[in-house]
């Protein structure tokens, strides 16, 4: 456990060194959030039917997306890991005293935590201070806030488990860009990052419900605004947990298989 903690701390420190990068990231995400809001506002203004998610709920949804972008997007590359795999230097990694899956998982988790830690607060603070109708709202009850926190954390763990598959797939494709592209485009669409899931046609919503992606982003953010009621949220947390267990289990298996092949081929 200590090794994992050290990795996390080191990452946080390196992240802090790059203040300009952090500031630039905050500004960029703020802009994106704002732009999405302007577009949705334009759509909502002359909507004929009542949309399935209110503009207020959507505002929180968008700002949370931007603040916790590091928790939810699959485009988040660790070139070090990619290089290890494509150059065959993975052999060194096999010498480490802890399991590779756990070690990489901790590394990726740490990266996302440090990045989000630096960026989420400024974005959230500004989002709470904005004029209407762009201002971010508090969650309706304290319970939904707690549920949101739980869902967000489980969502993060789930996302890292999904992103592990990107690295594992590179063993097969040998093309980091190709793998990222594939996972990025599909995963982010079904996580509601292109358009919010409640605004999708119902047949598509059914598809997203069968996939793990929406539990990383869409689910926690709608728990926050109360768009998902509390009892449903509890079920959702349970589903997150099951996905997490299944994906970690599958990931470990796939990674071990990939590594065995590397060892047999002699790197």
């Amino acid at each position: 456990m200590n090794a994992y903690y050290s990795v996390l701390k080191l990452r946080l420190l390196t992240g802090m060194q790059y203040r300009a990068a952090a500031l630039a990231g905050v500004a960029t995400q703020f802009f994106w959030g704002f732009m999405y809001l302007l577009i949705f506002q334009a759509f909502y203004q002359q909507a004929l039917h009542n949309p399935p998610i209110s503009l207020n709920e959507l505002v929180s949804y968008i700002w949370l997306q931007q603040a916790f972008l590091a928790f939810i997007m699959l485009w988040f590359r660790d070139n070090e890991l990619f290089n290890l795999i494509t150059t065959g230097n993975i052999a060194y990694e096999l010498c480490r005293p802890c399991g590779i899956y756990g070690f990489w998982y901790a590394k990726l988790l740490a990266q996302r935590l440090s990045s989000a830690f630096l960026r989420c607060f400024p974005i959230l603070i500004v989002a709470f201070l904005l004029p209407e109708p762009y201002r971010m709202k508090w969650p309706p009850t304290f319970t939904s806030f707690l549920l949101f926190l739980a869902a967000l954390m489980l969502g993060l763990l789930l996302l890292v488990a999904i992103s592990m598959f990107i690295y594992i797939s590179v063993f097969v494709t040998m093309s980091p860009v190709g793998s990222l592209l594939m996972f990025g485009v599909i995963g982010e669409f079904f996580a509601g990052l292109v358009i919010p899931i409640p605004l999708m046609p119902s047949w598509l919503q059914k598809v997203t419900n069968l996939l793990p992606f929406r539990y990383t982003a869409d689910f926690p953010f709608r728990v926050y605004s109360g768009h998902i009621p509390q009892n449903e949220a509890l079920t959702g947390l349970f589903i997150q947990l099951i996905w997490l267990i299944v994906l970690v289990w599958l990931g470990r298996m796939a990674l071990n298989k990939a590594l065995r092949r590397v060892v047999i081929q002699g790197g």
Binding site: P51, S175, L181, V185, F189, L204
Partner: peptide, 30 residues
């Protein structure tokens, strides 16, 4: 070729998003 095909699909998801939004809202400010 792999990346060219990939590049074909990136804006595809964005365009799909656009399509679904219009399916729900019909129009945007006229």
């Amino acid at each position: 070729w792999l990346l060219t095909i990939g590049q074909f699909f990136i804006p595809f998801s964005m365009f799909a998003g656009l399509y679904f939004l219009f399916e729900r809202f019909g129009q945007i400010k006229g």
